[in-house]
């Protein structure tokens, strides 16, 4: 057995040093040159950090575009989804139905069949930073009214924030909610 145990032990030690020590340190060094310097990119507004560019946050006030529902209440140190199955009656008739009712109450001009499902279903991470263009557009009337802006103005702002698919051809279009809402606040002045 000595023929195997000793080399195996030594090999384990040297590989741990290389793979868990040296390799990630080099990556961390390279990471210094990335946009967020390896710490994650933050977003500033009025001289203070208001969030991370990639991490969705809670928006529930009428004057902001709402983020998608989150099963973890946008806690960025406890990510996760609802893990509710598609036929779960509690989920369908309490969670989803409840969100539909809330949405209709705050958006009286919207008809039920216009609400995109993403606005009444929880995201996978609970931290989804994006909406689809349809998910943002459906909220334009509410936001415009709450802020005393014209719908045209808000709608143009949404259009300007639609991020195209990768290279223009791969994947879905999306709108970053945090960036859109900051742009809204800036519009006011």
């Amino acid at each position: 057995m000595k023929t195997y145990i000793l080399p195996a032990l030594k090999l384990t030690v040297i590989l741990i040093v290389i793979l868990a020590g040296v390799y990630p340190l080099i990556i961390a060094g390279i990471g210094k040159f990335t946009p967020g310097h390896g710490d994650g990119e933050t977003v500033q507004y009025k001289g203070r950090t208001v969030g991370y560019a990639l991490i969705g946050q809670k928006f529930t006030k009428d004057e902001y575009f709402w983020s998608r529902p989150s099963a973890v209440d946008y806690k960025a140190d406890a990510s996760g989804g609802s893990n509710k199955g598609p036929t779960n009656p509690d989920y369908l008739h309490k969670d989803v139905q409840g969100r539909i009712d809330t949405f209709l109450k705050h958006n009286p001009t919207v008809k039920k069949e216009q609400i995109p499902a993403e606005l009444v279903t929880a995201s996978g991470s609970g931290l989804d930073p994006d909406l689809s263009p349809a998910g943002a557009k459906i909220q334009v009337a509410r936001v415009a009214k709450a802020r005393g802006l014209s719908e045209q103005q808000v709608s143009t702002l949404v259009d300007a924030h639609i991020e195209k698919p990768l290279l223009g051809v791969f994947g879905p279009e999306k709108v970053n909610v945090l960036k859109l809402n900051i742009a809204l606040d800036e519009l006011k002045k």
């Binding site: 998608r68 989804g81 609802s82 893990n83 509710k84 598609p86 995109p116 499902a117 993403e118 279903t121 929880a122 995201s123 996978g124 991470s125 989804d128 930073p129 994006d130 909406l131 689809s132 349809a134 998910g135 994947g171 879905p172 999306k174």
Partner: peptide
């Protein structure tokens, strides 16, 4: 946009 429960928009 399909079944979105547990999915991410991006």
């Amino acid at each position: 946009t399909g079944a979105m429960e547990g999915k991410e928009v991006r």
